[in-house]
């Protein structure tokens, strides 16, 4: 749907480059010699059967896992031996597969934590409520209220997120990632476990963010219908290797991909 319409942010040069990375846990290879890139302002999907190494891939980009081989470059800078909080400072934010919200905090507080990188006031400024801290809090709060409004979660913004239904928690988590104003968002199964209606809304949010702010998205998704609808290009992983890479229409007709999804055994 995005290719036909005129986009405000034209798809540009590669913003993220994954070069020949390999990751293993003990003797198990999660990712083997994998390379792909993500172009600026595009929506890039990673698909593949369970255990294909999709989440491990995001965890490598995000700095939670360190790949044993290969390199990842973001905006030309190689990401190596750095922690998730440095990656965050470089402008990459994410959501998690199994929800990693701050359960005892309210929805708006969760989203406000996403503003961390835009908060310069230190604990003394905050303790003494110096003008700097107050001003900053006001700006951050306004920004977060906008996100709350955008995601249509005004009613639950003061509820501790642990008490919210799953679909809303997913939305709050997206909100927290948006609050960082990162240029690259990694979304790990943003629509898992949702019904059709919820999925449609989530798709709308993702596309709107992409169109409105030009945010580059990398998302893992199982629902092929959704993937075909919203992504510009798709990477297909199976057993830690890339078996397909290209626009959705192309990937859909790729024989390797069809085999992987239908469970045809390897080497046939």
């Amino acid at each position: 749907m995005s290719t036909i319409e005129e986009r405000k942010f034209k798809i540009g040069d590669p913003i993220l480059e994954v070069n020949n990375i390999s990751l293993s846990f003990g003797g198990v290879n999660a990712i083997t010699d994998t390379s792909f890139n993500v172009l600026e302002h595009e929506v890039r999907a990673i698909i593949g059967p369970n255990g294909a190494g999709k989440s491990s891939m995001l965890n490598c980009i995000n700095g939670i896992y360190k790949p044993q081989k290969g390199s990842i470059a973001f905006k030309g800078d190689t990401l190596s031996k750095i922690t998730p909080n440095i990656i965050a400072q470089m402008g990459i934010s994410r959501t998690f597969q199994n929800l990693a919200l701050f359960k005892r905090m309210s929805a708006i507080d969760n989203i406000l934590v996403g503003r961390k990188l835009h908060s310069k006031a230190n604990f003394l400024d905050v303790a003494l409520q110096l003008p700097k801290a107050r001003r900053e809090e006001k700006v951050n709060l306004k920004k977060c209220e906008e996100i709350v409004e955008f995601l249509e979660i005004e009613k639950i913004k003061d509820t501790p997120v642990g008490k919210l239904p799953y679909g809303l928690q997913k939305r709050v988590e997206l909100g927290r990632a948006l609050a960082t104003e990162a240029s690259l968002l990694l979304l790990d199964e943003p629509m898992a476990g949702m019904n059709v209606e919820e999925k449609r809304e989530m798709c709308r949010f993702i596309l709107e963010v992409n169109e409105e702010y030009g945010t580059t998205m990398v998302l893992i998704e199982h629902d092929m219908g959704v993937v075909m609808d919203i992504s510009d290009r798709v990477v297909v992983l199976d057993y830690g290797k890339i078996i397909g890479d290209g626009p959705p229409e192309e990937v859909r007709t790729n024989q390797n991909v069809i085999d992987a999804y239908l469970g045809v055994s390897h080497g046939e």
């Binding site: 994410r94 701050f102 359960k103 905090m105 507080d109 934590v113």
Partner: peptide, 19 residues
């Protein structure tokens, strides 16, 4: 908020830029 983020889910806190 940073304290509580570390308390509730440290990996996520770190991914939001909380050291």
């Amino acid at each position: 908020r940073n304290w509580m983020a570390v308390r509730d889910m440290d990996v996520a806190a770190e991914s939001m830029g909380v050291s």
